[in-house]
Design a binder for these strands. Structure first.
Length: 804
RNA sequence: GCAGGAGUGGCGGAAUGGCAGACGCAUCAGACUCAAAAUCUGACGUAGGUGACUAUGUGUGGGUUCAAGUCCCAUCUCCUGCACCA
């Protein structure tokens, strides 16, 4: 008789078996499928059940692809190991980050192995490994050579707690993405990457991608392209002109004043004797405001400079004001204000009593405006030779009309800014640049890479904008690679996002010391077919890696310009009441105990059963009992039927094929939670059949094959007991025979006016009249006599419509 | 403010416009047991009825349809993203 289900025994046995005989082997003939996880930061806290979810999803998908179409699946894992926690730990405990990182990697690798995934550990990469970051530095050098990496002195986002500069993408609602501190501004000389040079391609190529619309939209908005015109306004009595960017050049006649950002280079000089004091006070007050204050204060503030500009279209003198609602780093830092047709300008004009001139109207007549008329549709008025035109079409033509008139040009603007790429911290890739007093910044020759991160005494960030590396004189002082004179090394390091921007390329050729990846391997194994991870990187990692991939494509390193063909964002697993799991909240659930008590297979299945994979789910420990019971019942069901040698009949054949069809459809739709419930349903059916005649071997085998990607250990064991000699994963994914699924008789609902009254069994291929006759019979004495319409939906429903 | 998503039993959730609540958790009852656990069987939206049954029910209000959780209009709530981008 059957042995009881012992998950520990089964799992130990098959772990060993797989180690001896790997199931995912590249024989050079199979088609490749690259299924990638967003690689983790090796945190000292280890994994919780939330991390498992993404890894289980990707493993299920990898194993499914392996069986379906017999793919060789590239399914690697590695470590995004530079970053602040290791460095902060070093500051506190004096342990070198390399050591604590290595320890954490070992710990997490063991935890990840508990998932029982088919990761190919020979492909492992670690961004802090000099053999790896050599190539991160190499990419930087190539960007520097192409003019895409440059230095700039400017006010950048500064996190006072992390004591480092941040990229725009790392500032969320005015706060540091990592630590949540309020971000301030600091003037620093920074290394920048010219991601804006790729803005159009990054935007347009989104169309090529099979990504969640949400992520595409977030990137689209982040890039923020808008078309319009630059218009030059002469300053009354001065040589200089003020250039503004506008998306609404059609409203130019309605520009009744101008506003400059307080940071605008002409702001101070536009002040007159009378306004000097007020202007300088305003500039100073703005400088002292934090980003958050500046955005949150709804009330408009501003000051009149005392100077005037000339509207180039009608020659009118208009006042020039300063206000902090104009952003210094978008467009030109100056705007023309059309209060009649812009909410913000309207509010500003009302508050400071500035003229409002309507230039677009519904019906060609001016009206009393109580708010800005912001629709683009209307008829031009008060607009000289433009009067009577349709504003919508004028909006399109105005830029070139202005260009012809010679006081402006057509232009495109982006919200995207260049990537602030230097960090004033220790634990990152050193930027491979030498500053020579004669030659300026010179790249470290590529044959000298990697430029190793030196040992330091103190990891403490200086907070002054200098990196801890600046204190190591023997490292900083070097010679210029170009002229040989004494020179100093760049002491800033790269941001955390550098190493993760290209790691997916390295997996397939991780020991190559000649190239970051060989052309041959890149062509063969890339791009990534399926990328699985959380949505939190939508405009960070996912934008940066697209940028780097396009750059590598441009310099001929890879033959594709988008790294991730398909993207799937799994939902987060939270603690009770939807609270994010974190050590500080004390609501972290570790997978370790669950694996011990219920087994890896149970936890894998519960991670999926807990809810739709793309939605957040609250973790509830009790639910795992359900899948554990399912696996035990399945185990007993299979073993009970093992020796019975039941012959397949029409019904078993039908069950088997509908099962194949149902499970496969749900899996293809990525509805993994309903795949699990599907297994439960069919298991319930087969348990019933077991009591009632038994189940044939082929049906049992089919069940086990389909279960294998989800519960690999139990499935291998049952497969072996069912007579399998090779791994179940070398079986092709079953295909349903639609004919065998057909039934002869179906139960239909019988409705009166759409309300179900009873059910009836009818032969499936019956004619409408016959079906209705049987349905009426089934109603017996409830049959109404005033039927006005009869509807038959084959195999589903008969609805009798009655006059009311 | 703008954009996107979601509101279904005690809970997680399921339903190509066609029998709402599959599957699971929890709960209750029964079987087994000296007992408990495990396991098995059954009940399980709400209201009424001893009962077969009847009525009602997918945030709210309308509409389209023979038929609406699903489509359309309006509205409320929650979540996510962006947020003075000219």
């Amino acid at each position: 008789m059957s042995t009881p289900f012992n998950h520990q025994e089964v799992e130990t046995k098959w772990r060993k078996r797989w180690e001896e005989n790997p199931i995912n082997v590249n024989d050079g003939k199979k088609e490749k499928y690259y299924c990638l996880d967003m690689f983790p930061y090796p945190s000292a806290n280890g994994l919780h059940v939330g991390h498992w979810r993404g890894y289980v999803i990707s493993d299920v998908w990898s194993r499914y692809k392996m069986m379906q179409g017999s793919h060789y699946v590239i399914h690697p894992m590695g470590w995004d190991a530079f970053g602040l926690p290791a460095e902060n730990y070093a500051i506190k405990m004096g342990v070198h980050p390399a050591r604590s990182t290595a320890e954490n990697v070992d710990k997490i690798r063991e935890q990840i192995k508990q998932i029982g995934a088919i990761y190919d550990w020979d492909m492992e990469v670690n961004t802090t490994d000099p053999d790896y970051y050599k190539w991160t530095q190499w990419i930087f050098v190539k960007m520097f050579e192409k003019g895409l990496a440059y230095q700039k002195e400017m006010p950048i986002n500064w996190c006072p707690s992390c004591k480092t500069g941040l990229a725009n993408e790392e500032v969320v609602n005015g706060k540091c993405e990592r630590c949540g501190s309020e971000v301030t501004k600091k003037d620093l000389n920074q290394w920048m990457l010219k991601i804006t040079a790729y803005a159009d391609r990054l935007l347009e190529d989104l169309n090529k991608l099979d990504w969640p619309e949400k992520v595409k939209k977030m990137q689209t908005e982040w890039i923020g392209r808008s078309y319009g015109a630059e218009v030059e306004f002469p300053i009354d009595g001065r040589e200089e002109k003020l250039t503004v960017f506008t998306t609404r050049p059609d409203t130019l006649y309605g520009a009744t004043f101008m506003v400059l950002a307080p940071e605008h280079e002409l702001a101070k000089s536009l002040a007159t004797q009378e306004t000097k004091e007020a202007v300088e006070a305003y500039i100073e007050a703005t400088a002292n405001k934090s980003n958050v204050d500046r955005v949150q204060s709804k009330e408009k503030t501003g000051v009149f400079t005392g100077s005037y500009a000339i509207n180039p279209l009608n020659g009118e003198k208009i006042e020039i004001w300063l206000s902090d609602y104009v952003l210094a780093d978008y467009g030109t830092g100056a705007i023309m204000c059309v209060p009649a047709h812009d909410d913000r300008d309207f509010e500003f004009a009302k508050k400071f009593g500035l003229p409002i001139v309507q230039v677009i109207s519904k019906d060609g007549k001016a009206e009393e405006l109580t708010e800005a008329y912001t629709e683009a549709d209307g008829i031009m008025i008060n607009s000289g030779d433009w009067n009577g035109m349709q504003s919508a079409s004028l909006k399109m033509e105005a830029p070139s009309m202005i260009e012809k008139k010679g006081f402006g040009k057509k232009t495109t603007n982006y919200k995207l800014r260049d990537w602030v790429f230097s960090r004033q911290r220790y634990w990152g890739e050193p930027i491979p640049i030498v500053h020579c007093p004669d030659c300026g910044p010179v790249a470290v020759p590529v044959e000298e890479l990697p430029l190793l991160l030196p040992e330091v005494e103190s990891y403490q960030p200086t907070g002054t904008g200098e990196s801890p590396l600046a204190a190591i004189e023997e490292w900083v002082n070097t010679t210029c690679p170009k002229c040989g004179k004494a020179a100093k090394r760049e002491t800033n390091t790269m941001p955390q996002w550098a190493g993760s921007s290209w790691y997916f390329l390295r997996y397939v050729d991780n020991h190559n010391d000649q190239e970051l990846v060989s052309k041959e391997k890149a062509d063969r194994y890339l791009p990534v077919d399926m990328y699985i991870g959380g949505v939190e990187h939508a405009v960070l990692h996912l934008l940066y890696s697209r940028f780097w991939t396009k750059f590598l494509y441009d310099i001929g390193v890879v033959g594709f310009d988008e790294p991730f063909t398909k993207l799937f964002n799994q939902g987060m697993i939270t603690g009770k009441n939807g609270i994010k799991m974190s050590k500080s909240k004390g609501n972290v659930i570790s997978p370790d105990d669950l694996v011990r008590d219920y087994g890896c297979d149970s936890l894998r299945m519960y991670e999926l059963f807990v809810g739709p994979p793309d939605q957040d789910a609250e973790w509830d420990d009790r639910g795992i009992d359900g899948v554990y019971r399912f696996l035990s019942r399945l185990w007993n069901m299979v073993l009970t039927n093992l020796d019975a040698d039941v012959k397949e009949d029409e019904e078993l054949l039908r069950i088997r094929n509908s099962m194949i069809h149902d499970i496969s459809t749900r899996l293809e739709n990525f509805s993994l939670n309903t795949v699990i419930s599907g297994f439960m349903e069919y298991n319930n059916t087969l348990v019933e059949k077991t009591r009632n005649g038994g189940v044939d071997k082929e049906t049992l085998k089919t069940f086990v094959k389909m279960l294998a990607p989800f519960a690999p250990h139990v499935s291998e064991e049952l497969w072996e007991r069912l007579g399998g000699t090779d791994s179940v994963f070398h079986e092709p994914w079953p295909v349903a025979d639609k004919k065998a699924m057909e039934v002869k008789e179906v139960e239909i609902a019988v409705q009166i006016n759409g309300k179900v009254k009873t059910t009836a069994k009818i032969p499936v291929d019956i004619a409408k009249e016959e079906a209705i006759r049987i349905a009426k019979e089934s109603l017996a004495d409830k049959l109404p006599d005033n039927i006005v319409k009869e509807i038959y939906v084959p195999g589903k429903i008969v609805n009798l419509v009655v006059e009311s």
